[in-house]
């Protein structure tokens, strides 16, 4: 597993994390509020975030590929195609086989798919242009509850440790997954494999639990009180406020456009 943040200097990388966090949040919220079928607005939202992506010099291919992570979640909206609002239309697939679908449902499904994909795109852009500690500090300055920030911070820190643990376990298992030259039954039954995987998950859980105890003891012995060390609070500069203002204005403008053109 790798951190998304790519150390690649650009205007977007250098920008104050708070500007990026607030903008991304507003972007995702207003995009979410844009009505179904407002295609013009979607295209403009996408254009806006693509332009920022270009400015960040990350390589659009990199972000677009990563944004596909939204795909499985989008499938949850797929039933809308069939159970969307009436009227339903009959479609002859083969002779004698008919499918009912709702045109309104199709519009909703495509809208949801596009919106999720563009939102994920925006979030990835934020993560890839901002150092994680900077994100945490900006949350702190934006008065996000400290416990919440501590949880995010620790989760991020140990995600890497645990994923490495997982890869070591898988490596050890692969090493013992041998075959015989002439045996047809290789790999055991599906049920047995599921059991083994379950065992691995359980063992990983126990190890993580034990590790968290050790980490917590080490943190306490270094004087941890449940708070991140306070950071210097510097108000946003004039130009940063202006950039944020323009960004927010654009997002709200696109949303209003969506309200006027969308279903």
């Amino acid at each position: 597993m790798q951190e998304v943040y790519a150390h690649n200097r650009s205007i977007i990388h250098q920008m104050d994390a708070r500007v990026k966090v607030i903008f991304t949040l507003a972007f995702v919220i207003f995009l979410g509020l844009t009505p179904f079928g407002a295609w013009h607005a979607y295209i403009l939202f996408l254009t806006l975030i693509l332009s920022i992506g270009l400015l960040s010099r990350l390589g659009l291919g990199f972000i677009l590929k990563r944004a596909l992570i939204a795909l499985p979640f989008v499938l949850a909206a797929f039933p809308l195609v069939f159970i969307g609002p009436s009227p339903h239309i009959t479609l002859n697939v083969f002779q004698g086989i008919q499918v009912f679908y709702s045109p309104e449902g199709v519009v909703r499904f495509i809208s949801i798919a596009l919106k999720s994909w563009i939102s994920v795109f925006a979030s990835i852009l934020l993560a890839a242009t901002t150092r994680f500690p900077d994100l945490l500090i900006s949350f702190q300055q934006m008065r996000v509850p400290k416990l919440f920030i501590a949880v995010i911070g620790l989760m991020w820190r140990y995600l890497f440790v645990i994923s490495e643990e997982v890869s070591r376990m898988l490596r050890a298992r692969t090493s013992r997954s041998a075959t015989l030259p002439d045996s047809p039954h290789v790999g055991g039954t599906v049920f047995w494999r599921a059991r083994v995987t379950g065992g691995m998950a359980g063992s990983l859980f126990l190890r993580s639990l034990e590790r968290s105890d050790r980490v917590y003891a080490a943190m306490l012995s270094r004087g941890y009180t449940g708070e991140l060390p306070a950071s210097d609070f510097q108000p946003l500069s004039k130009s940063e406020r202006r950039i944020l203002g323009i960004g927010l204005f654009l997002v709200i403008f696109l949303w209003a456009l969506g309200l006027m053109t969308g279903g």
Partner: peptide
Amino acid sequence: FQNPDDQLFSPTVFEDVAYGPIYQG
């Protein structure tokens, strides 16, 4: 492997030792 915890992942010793031969069929 260096860390036996990476290698032992089953609920009982029997199942852990049996992993290889069962996989072999």
